[in-house]
Design a protein around this nucleic acid. Structure first.
Lengths: 252, 252
DNA sequence: ACCTGAACACCGTTCAAGT
DNA sequence: ACCTGAACACCGTTCAAGT
């Protein structure tokens, strides 16, 4: 109970504002997951009654919307803080290095707030701030020589990657140690029989782990690999020989 | 209130089972979204009291887990019903056509249940049935000549695509007709100024819509395009000249 | 065995009331 | 203006009780 004790709540005595409400809500989600973000709980963290929140946030749904805006703003900040993502690393640069840096910046924010993709998926509309990010990517690509046709495709593909790549496929065990149905060795043998290819793959990947690429790094290298694959594929698709769209050259 | 009236509920008089509970819950989610899936609400649809559900499902969390299993099972069914996805379209086939068919099959299920990606993202663990699907993809790829290294990458990339591609980026308006702040033409002008590239892209894409590719089809063509990009990129990465992994050839 | 009613602890939200 | 207490309608879940 490191976050909910009265001392912490009392130390957070300040004028109370929309920003403070959202910050506390985000911290709560970071620490205990989205389900812990409750009007009464957030208020408790602020040393205040639940109904006080309604003066700074338009209800629970508005609070969740504010959390999404906060995440989008953090992506904007991360992009602004990275020269490569801003695109001023050199005038003659490939659009791919800029877009790549932007995707990596967005991903760091998603890793900081693992609840963000789930929350964004649960919302009915795309947050306004996201359109600004899309606009910037479009600008980088079009000025870099891409067609609108390709840039549109890129937004879909990259957006789905940034939002979908948080989940770990094969996390080490399922927290099943201690209460399992018996021998771990036995379970492994059963899995080897039921899922032979999966077992072989896990063994193969573990064997190759000479350098210390654990947890975050593993998923990170998958992400960067796929990102590179997509960017190169996109660049190739927009070339004369590529699978260009049926229409004319540029747009409008 | 087409789904909740007593007649419908009464017509659903049958022995009540785990399967019936999950089917009704899925139908409720299809019709009114995940938030409508409530123990009391599901019970009401079945013409029964909320507490009766506990005899067939281990609580709300178990019900949600059952919904995930149901979606996974539907993907398995869709795969089994498609000869191309089963891989028996011909012995000499490219692994890409099989994997592609499997991804398309999975996507049709996601389109049928738009709440599925959000639900899956909200769960702490990967459903057991999903590992069987992964295993099958692994088998197709490895028998097709891919390394485990590449197949692992493919699972990440394709999984994130299937789960992340449901959201529409630029849905026609935001349901803002009628109560907006004024002229639609004025709004468009404001957007053209704030988001020039986005405006140009939308105009360009609308201009090219000669053939009747609306709604579902648009998003579908983006999905298929990205899918093709990924599959071709993956195939290229595993070739001798590609960006192969640092280790040795195969695995283990 | 399967289903139920009452009850408990929680949730978002309204509203009249305080300061 | 900002915050509060009581209240309302909902939620998941427990438990003793019905059949």
């Amino acid at each position: 109970m490191t976050i909910g004790d009265p001392t912490t709540a009392r130390s957070a005595r300040a004028p109370l504002s929309r920003e403070r409400v959202l910050d506390v809500a985000a911290g709560l989600a970071d620490a205990e997951g989205l389900r812990a973000v409750t009007m009464r709980r957030v208020a408790g963290e602020l040393g205040v009654e639940a109904m006080s929140l309604y003066h700074h946030v338009p209800g629970k749904d508005g609070l969740l919307g504010g959390l999404v805006d906060l995440v989008v703003a953090q992506v904007s900040d991360a992009v602004a803080a990275d020269p490569a993502a801003r695109g001023d690393a050199g005038g003659s640069g490939d659009w791919r290095v800029t877009v790549r840096a932007r995707c990596l910046a967005a991903r760091t924010v998603m890793l900081r707030h693992p609840w963000a993709p789930e929350l964004i998926a649960s919302r009915p509309t795309i947050p306004p701030g996201a359109f600004v990010l899309f606009e910037e990517v479009l600008g980088v690509m079009v000025r870099g020589g891409c067609s609108y046709w390709l840039a549109h495709k890129a937004l879909h593909a990259l957006g789905s990657m940034v939002l979908g790549f948080t989940q770990e496929l094969f996390s080490p065990a399922g927290g099943d140690d201690g209460g399992g149905p018996g021998d771990a060795e036995e379970d492994l043998a059963a899995m080897a029989e039921a899922l032979p290819y999966t077992t072989a793959m896990v063994a193969s990947e573990m064997h190759d782990a000479d350098d210390p690429t654990l947890g975050w790094c593993d998923s990170q290298s998958e992400f960067e690999f796929t990102l590179g694959l997509l960017l190169d594929g996109l660049a190739r698709a927009d070339e004369p020989g590529g699978l260009h769209r049926p229409g004319t050259a540029q747009g409008s």
